[in-house]
Design a binder for these strands. Sequence first.
DNA 1: GGCAATGCCTGACTAAAGTCAGCTATGTGG
DNA 2: CCACATAGCTGACTTTAGTCAGGCATTGCC
Lengths: 292, 292
Amino acid sequence: MASVRRFNRTVTQRVGALDDEYMARGRPLGQARLLWEIGPAGAEVAALRGRLGLDSGYLSRLLRSLEADGLITIGPAIGPAGGDGRVREARLTAAGRAEWAVLDERSDDLARSILTPLSDGQRDRLTAAMHEVERLLLASMVVIEVVPPGDPRARACLRAYVREIAHRFDDGFDPALSTPAADEAFTAPAGAFLLATLASEPVGCGGVKLHRHGPAEIKRLWVAEAVRGMGVGRRILGELEHHAAERGYAAVRLDTNRNLHEAIRMYRSSGYREIPQYNAERYAHHWFEKTL
Amino acid sequence: MASVRRFNRTVTQRVGALDDEYMARGRPLGQARLLWEIGPAGAEVAALRGRLGLDSGYLSRLLRSLEADGLITIGPAIGPAGGDGRVREARLTAAGRAEWAVLDERSDDLARSILTPLSDGQRDRLTAAMHEVERLLLASMVVIEVVPPGDPRARACLRAYVREIAHRFDDGFDPALSTPAADEAFTAPAGAFLLATLASEPVGCGGVKLHRHGPAEIKRLWVAEAVRGMGVGRRILGELEHHAAERGYAAVRLDTNRNLHEAIRMYRSSGYREIPQYNAERYAHHWFEKTL
DNA sequence: GGCAATGCCTGACTAAAGTCAGCTATGTGG
DNA sequence: CCACATAGCTGACTTTAGTCAGGCATTGCC
């Protein structure tokens, strides 16, 4: 704990201050950060508000000032929220892109200024340790919560889940042939659906069905590529088990496909034991159970 | 480099923002930071100015506001700068100490909030990686510069140097019996004196004498306990060699005491070879030379 | 003892950051 | 088609942060 505290102080204060200094070039920091966040690809106003955590009025004013400086233009959104005429999008002008490139360059300068005084060995150790810290901090920022399975973020996860297994199963995946699962099955009291988010982006999900008779059943456990290996799957699994245990279930079961090696490994190391086939799931090759 | 950049973004933005939020409890951040920095032991105004990097007038005003809130008192310094009637010292009142304790507690909360979602193994890896990052970042923040040997920070290093060798040499250390070295010997053009600082605190030093005839000579190489093992000594040594090489010297020499094991190891691994005794230094047991 | 330097303080500013209430245009669900 | 929500904008503020020029007492140095 002491080392976390020291880290927070030393690193965020010192590196943070440096970062700000490199970022703001004459321009107020708020504007510089905003310009950076818009990026060459442009960004919707609402997204910027979320990422930077700014007040709507304040953000609007900042956008206005960047626009006055000729760095950005603001127009109707053409991206994902295309149709909605209320949503607006900020895009860099040529001057804005040039300025953004300077910021990008300075970001490199900052990295260089940290690495230069060190020996080769120290550099390698520092980058390795930074990578580790970053990954683990991201892991610790993942929040898991119960949501209705109809939640748009849950839907997005489920779509990604289906896309992935369709790609990984030997014979593809046709939802019509698999055991169906209606939203109600994952809604209290029949069950629950958990969503894992990182900085409010959905990065994983999992559902549990609380069957009237017999063990509870875990379904639709999925973790986004970007956060694999961070223990997110295991955390979701644990919370699903916890959910069932709290409601009096003595065991949980699940089925899985032989191609999902990491998942199978995780089940085994989480205390699941392989059991005989207990359902007729078309795509399953292994069946597991864990006593709670 | 990319991992340094990603680290800077993720860590300073996310943890930095959290840190600020935890720190400022209703109070402006500047005041909270200042209160924290004063600490239960109190602090001199000049020290606070240095540590927080604030303008003298601004700091004065912040102190005034904390005083008005009954959290601190400001009086004549009683610490190291005791005699000087101009120096003033801030001390926490009972209310201030209570408030400080709350900040301390919140600092723990933040650390806890980072560690809680992780598994035991991840926690260990995170704290280890944080420790590594912190040390290496500190190392990279060490600045080495040429200063007159009369500089108060250089003097402080030399005092620490003498104190340390007096303690480590078998038969103590009496400056009168050692080869004397006047300030002029470390002042251009006769030589140079380097000072290493970390956040403007002196943490190491070293001098080189540019003898009229024969190799240059390195003396008074010292590194503070707190930053040992960070490669600071090796950097100072390298810069001293560089200084001599630039001025046409083909070799540098130095003598050392048999008890200074780390130093001897560093000389050897930096390319120094042991040579026969070349001076009458009372406290030396080994003599080294490196061809530049 | 006089004079420059130092350490801290005050007054008078400015700019940046952030808040809040209300406004307009667009979209949505009955 | 209406009521109501949502996305973003504007005006009118307040607070925080920070700068700069001078001022006063104390110290250090010839």
